[in-house]
């Protein structure tokens, strides 16, 4: 996993609440057995006027010019600004894979769906929760100023606006550590193999039917 420390990037404002993972990456792309290459199909149904198919090139597909990611001023965005309950619905990890593959390392929203929130950290994406009023303001500023960029500093837990204002955010210390260092969860857990084995030995006594 790629470490994430400081991200400075163009912000793309996706002004909709309850954006679900079906919208982030439609189901036909879930047939892939790989974890990369989903970026061109991120938000496929909103982004293009025709239906995307896995294994088919996206070159020359008719784009929906009104969709935020297709507007020239938001090309190359690395931070997604979103509304409440972003990432709800199915648990597909293809959603963060698609966001990452497109180039988003940070998503800012007032709230996220649980599984999606979790999946982001596992894939080197930082979901930042900011208060609804603050997100509102960032939407206004992003839309008002072409080339609007934010800096997200994970080490200091701050979103820094172009005006230099620092907006503090909370992040779980362990997740922060893993993201800063790009650490693999499984390797970390296997360091506690002794505790897992001791637990299993005890549980086999207490609830033998739990083992097959």
């Amino acid at each position: 996993m790629e470490p994430l420390r400081v991200v400075t990037a163009i912000v793309a404002p996706l002004d909709r609440a309850n954006v679900d993972t079906d919208a982030i990456i439609p189901k036909q792309f879930l047939k892939s057995i790989r974890r990369s290459g989903f970026g061109p199909n991120l938000f496929d149904e909103w982004r293009y006027r025709d239906r995307g198919e896995p294994g088919r090139s996206n070159e020359g597909r008719p784009e929906n010019p009104d969709f935020v990611l297709n507007r020239s001023r938001y090309r190359g965005a690395g931070i997604l600004l979103a509304r409440d309950n972003f990432g709800c619905g199915s648990s597909r990890e293809h959603a963060p894979w698609a966001l990452l593959d497109y180039g988003f390392r940070v998503i800012i929203a007032p709230s996220f769906a649980d599984i999606f929130f979790n999946n982001c950290f596992k894939n080197g994406i930082l979901p930042v929760r900011l208060e609804g009023g603050v997100v509102d303001r960032l939407f206004r500023e992003t839309e008002a100023t072409e080339g609007y960029r934010l800096t997200v500093d994970l080490e200091r837990q701050e979103v820094i606006t172009p005006g230099g204002e620092a907006l503090a955010f909370e992040v779980d210390p362990f997740r922060r550590h893993c993201l800063l260092e790009g650490l693999d969860d499984i390797g970390l857990t296997l360091q506690h193999l002794g505790a897992i084995e001791a637990f299993e030995a005890r549980r086999r006594q207490e609830a033998p039917w739990a083992f097959l």
């Binding site: 648990s91 599984i115 596992k122 969860d185 897992i196």
Partner: peptide, 14 residues
């Protein structure tokens, strides 16, 4: 429900 990274984590570590 869990994501695919967690599926891998459970497979490897229970």
């Amino acid at each position: 429900g869990v994501g695919t990274s967690e599926v891998e984590h459970v497979l490897a570590t229970q």
